[in-house]
Amino acid sequence: MASIDHRGLDMFRYLMGRLGMLAFTLFLLTMFVFTLMHMAPGDPAALMLQGFGATPDENMIAFYQNKWGLDQSFLMQYVSWLMELAKGNLGNSYLTNKPVVEEIGSRISMTLLLLISSFTLTFLISVPLGLMAGLREKSLIDRILYGATVLGLSVPLYWLAILLMLSFGVIWPIFPIIGGGSVSHYVLPVAAISMVQSVYFIRMIRSFTVEYKKTPYLEAAISRGIKRRMLYPSYLFRSMLVPVLTIVGTSFPSFFGATIIIENVFSFPGIGKYMLDTIYNRDYPVIQGCSLLLAATIFILNFVTDVSYYMADPRIHLEKQRWEN
């Protein structure tokens, strides 16, 4: 049908526009990170040579500066750096002299698993609780949940994690408190992250529920006697899909922030702990690589959120009255 093609074309235009914006943002980002790297204290050639275990003198530094192109203009250096980046080369760590990509790659799966499992648990906790509180506004359960979220907003994550360690690792030692690898290593970190992150989600979902249950179309569905089993998951939650998608898509930074803290509390060998270690050691190529990766993930997730939102809500591609005539 012609109208479907029309919708497809609109979609294509929208996608192209958003992709262009994404590319531009990522370009700005590389500029910014490269400039910071350039401004960072210390001479890169000297630092790199120290990474090889040498104690370089001035001649040696000058020689390698020339060899590695570090004496060229800022712009030239940026261009060659960008070319390397396009090939997937982020340079070598000052500390271990191994490629940054390798260093990050060996740790990323653990962090990803941690992020995904805590996100899933958070979602599973907060959707039913948020809906319950919102549907029974001002009831006992709503008030108890409100109190719990106030406490949850104020509890320092690292303290909560330490209390969990103390309770389930020291006093009642059923879970390991340090390191990573086995499934049991994930239990306490995931629990700590989900407990704190759920608070935001519960509040959001509650307020959406309160807002959307008053809409005329939900009232109309009730007046048609739609069963509760269909009404809440389908009619109510469907209209909340766009706002919920938005929080889900933009919640990555806060989950990642929580991961940094948790990985350091539990000495969990993932990206968060590695990142902090490299900041201690002033291992600039790794800091650069990590920030690039983190920023790119955030921007791409925002992009995906925007696009899926466009697809989830038919009202955005309004084509009024295409049924007329």
Binding site: V33, A40, P253, I260, I279, C290, S291, L294, A295, I298
Partner: peptide
């Protein structure tokens, strides 16, 4: 996001 800004500033 705040976390990215903080890491970049402290990092560099």
């Amino acid at each position: 996001p705040n976390i990215l800004l903080t890491i970049v500033i402290i990092g560099f």
